[in-house]
Design a protein around this nucleic acid. Structure first.
Lengths: 129, 129
DNA sequence: TTTGTTGCTATACAAAAGGATACTGGTATC
DNA sequence: GATACCAGTATCCTTTTGTATAGCAACAAA
């Protein structure tokens, strides 16, 4: 019961929350991580990315790429071909996200498996997309 | 240049994107991870959480807690005191998120440091919250 | 000359997320 | 009796995110 109210140290916890908030802020939205992962297999052009991430509209893709550029995860290079060729590439700094990406990816995989088991056992569960 | 267009294996990449999407879906929003971290220091009551996560409105907190319950990250226990006491607690399953949380927290810390350096050097950069 | 491609931008709109504020029922305290 | 606490709900509003659709400039191919 709660006759002994828990006193939080607070400190570490608050710092951790602030740090997570920063990360969430930079990676915010549905598309930033998917774009980064798509670029992992090599530089891509605008249309390539649109095709790979099906369902993303050019407006959003453009916006997300700009933010990724500002955060120095992605570079944008224009070649004077015709029609113009624009190549997007990952930066060295984007590699610092690798561990985050791996953990999120692993977790997603195991969670999906778990959900499948749960639904076979007919337990209530939130559905995936 | 792009005379040799890169052919993506696609496979692994697509799977990874799907897995990340699942993770983003389950952890979606501004508050789920902060709530989980807040609960790491022990069970909390509704008001406690509101105080710890300052600025969260009861409506949002209530909604997020329900989703966390559905996803089996959190349990809700009601004690028949008066006024009623409701305690929120982390489940065993929530611990599977630990690695994700650690990596995101670490990344956020280093990123903030980097941003501070960048702004001292007066390079343009996206601001943190 | 028409059609197509690329890399976007512009406009309008819809949906989702989040916030502000007020309130409720039950009980305890002043 | 008035006020306050708890655990939320209810209502309304703003902001963010995302979609749909159209268009443009510069070519290139048919």
């Amino acid at each position: 019961m709660i006759n002994t109210p828990i006193v939080h140290s607070g400190e570490a916890c608050t710092k951790s929350i602030a740090a997570i908030r920063d990360t969430l802020y930079v990676l915010s939205g549905k598309w930033k991580l998917p774009i980064i992962i798509a670029l992992k297999s090599g530089p891509s052009r605008f249309k390539d990315l649109q095709r790979q991430l099906q369902d993303i509209t050019p407006k959003i893709l453009s916006k997300e790429l700009k933010e990724l550029e500002l955060n120095e995860f992605v570079t944008r290079t224009v070649y004077a071909t015709s029609p113009v060729t624009v190549e997007y590439n990952l930066t060295k700094y984007s590699e610092t996200l690798n561990k985050v990406i791996i953990e999120m990816s692993d977790w997603g995989l195991q969670h999906r498996k778990r959900m499948m088991n749960n639904s076979r056992k007919e337990k209530k569960s939130i559905s995936l997309q």
